[in-house]
C-alpha cells in the first residue's frame, strides 16, 4: 500500500473507510453498577434497540470490539482489570464513559474505594452524563461518537500521529 506509506489518503477513500467503520461498531459492554442496567436497556431492549444505529452489542470478547462502554462506578480494585481489558482491544478503539460515576466519581466523590473517573486509566472519547443517564442519552453518545469517527483522518492514524478531531 504505497498510499499508506506516503501518509496520504484521497478524500473519497477516507470517507468510505470512515463510513464503513462508523456503522459497524462492535460495542463491548462493561457494566459495573446501576448504569449497567440502563445500558442493558439501551442495548438489549426492544424499545431502544441500538442496532438500528449500526452498533452491534455483545461481542464474544474485548478482542473483537471497537468500542467499550464503561458504565458505572469504577473501584480501585477494578482498575487493573479495566486497564488490561482496554489493552486487549485492537486499534482503533473508542471508549464511552457512561454515568457520573465513570465520569468523575459521581455520588462517591469522597469515597475511599472509588476511582474518581475512568479517564484516569484509559482515554475517553465520549462522556455521557447522568445518574443514571437514560438509555436515549447513551444512544446520543453513540451518535456523537459516530460523528467523530466520520471526521477522522485515517492517514493520520496510520502515520501514528495523535488524532485531532475538528
Amino acid at each position: 500500500m504505497g498510499l499508506v506509506e506516503s501518509g496520504k489518503l484521497p478524500k473519497p477513500l477516507t470517507s468510505l473507510l470512515n463510513t464503513s467503520r462508523k456503522y459497524s461498531i462492535w460495542i463491548f459492554q462493561w457494566g459495573l453498577a446501576c448504569c449497567a442496567i440502563e445500558m442493558g436497556a439501551a442495548l438489549g431492549s426492544p424499545r431502544y434497540d441500538v442496532m438500528r444505529l449500526g452498533v452491534i452489542p455483545l461481542p464474544a470478547s474485548p478482542r473483537q470490539a471497537d468500542l467499550v462502554c464503561f458504565s458505572g462506578t469504577v473501584t480501585d480494585k477494578m482498575v487493573p482489570s479495566i486497564r488490561r481489558l482496554y489493552d486487549q482491544m485492537p486499534d482503533p478503539k473508542y471508549v464511552i464513559s457512561m454515568g457520573s460515576c465513570a465520569n468523575c466519581g459521581g455520588p462517591y466523590w469522597d469515597s475511599y474505594s472509588v476511582t474518581k473517573g475512568v479517564d484516569q486509566i484509559v482515554p475517553v472519547d465520549v462522556y455521557v452524563p447522568g445518574c443514571p443517564p437514560r438509555p436515549e442519552a447513551l444512544l446520543e453518545g453513540i451518535v456523537l461518537l459516530q460523528e467523530r469517527i466520520g471526521k477522522e483522518d485515517m492517514a493520520e492514524r496510520w502515520r501514528g500521529e495523535p488524532i485531532v478531531v475538528s
Binding site: D76, K77, G105, W109, D110, S111, Y112, S113, K116
Partner: peptide, 21 residues
C-alpha cells in the same frame, strides 16, 4: 473481603480520613 490487598487503614474507624474531603 472488599478492599484490595495493598489498602492501608480501617475505613470505618472514625479517625480514618476521607482524603477527597
Amino acid at each position: 473481603i472488599y478492599l484490595p490487598g495493598e489498602f492501608e487503614g480501617h475505613p470505618l474507624r472514625k479517625d480514618f480520613p476521607l482524603l477527597a474531603r
